[in-house]
């Protein structure tokens, strides 16, 4: 499996450069607009999309057909993508915390609120990928991408709808409650992301075992 991860890292060098360049631009914009959260969210989004990019490269080169003739099982093939997804999420989480600390020190602000926001967004992004990956395996990257867009838009739409339907005082009360229980809620989100990762992996593996090349 090590070789499969190596392969993905080799293949994503070009894409990684694009991510760094985009982030540098966004950092400039974020600092100018005094909105560092923008960089953080974009960084997360772009980084996690590396998985999708690597699957697209595999599909284009018919790599999986070849890799399955090498000493890899179908389990190795699927597990390598999930290991990579987790690794990217962990590395990005650490980077975001460092970024947060630097910005907080420079701006003299409290770390807690932004750190929690970053973690929450990371958990949501991760969950979006956990739901999307089985679709990408089932439908292929091109068709799976549309499903993924739907999965990304759906939670935002739902939250906006709920916020609109609730009376203003209820929305405010919910925000206060979330603020009061932010760390337990975050813990629950991270736990949900971890359980989701396992469930997603099992579903993807079941799909992949039936796939023909």
């Amino acid at each position: 499996m090590k070789a499969l991860i190596w392969k993905d890292l080799y293949c994503m060098r070009g894409f990684l450069k694009q991510v760094v360049a985009t982030e540098a631009i966004l950092l400039g914009i974020g600092v100018t607009l005094n909105n560092p959260a923008m960089i953080a969210f974009a960084l997360l989004f772009l980084s996690l999309s590396l998985i999708q990019a690597s699957m697209s490269v595999d599909e284009k080169n018919r790599w999986e057909r070849y890799a399955l003739t090498m000493p890899f099982s179908r389990r190795d093939m699927v597990a390598s993508k999930y290991v990579l997804l987790t690794a990217i999420a962990v590395v990005m989480g650490i980077l975001l915390m460092l970024l947060n600390m630097v910005l907080a020190a420079v701006r003299g602000e409290d770390l807690t609120a932004t750190a929690a926001a970053y973690l929450a967004v990371a958990a949501v992004y991760l969950m979006i990928y956990e739901v999307s990956l089985p679709f990408l395996y089932k439908l292929g990257v091109e068709r799976g991408r549309y499903v993924m867009m739907g999965i990304m838009v759906a939670p935002v739409f739902c939250v906006a709808l709920i916020a609109k339907c609730l009376p203003p005082e209820a929305s405010q009360r919910a925000a206060e409650l979330a603020g009061a229980y932010i760390w337990p809620l975050l813990g629950a989100a991270v736990a949900a992301a971890a359980v989701g990762m396992y469930v997603s992996y099992r579903v993807s593996l079941a799909i992949y075992r039936k796939k023909e090349f």
């Binding site: 392969k7 080799y10 293949c11 490269v57 284009k60 080169n61 018919r62 057909r65 070849y66 003739t69």
Partner: peptide, 12 residues
């Protein structure tokens, strides 16, 4: 195994 056409990632 050798398939018709290469299956190696093109960026490598």
């Amino acid at each position: 195994v050798v398939f018709e056409g290469s299956s190696f990632p093109e960026e490598l």
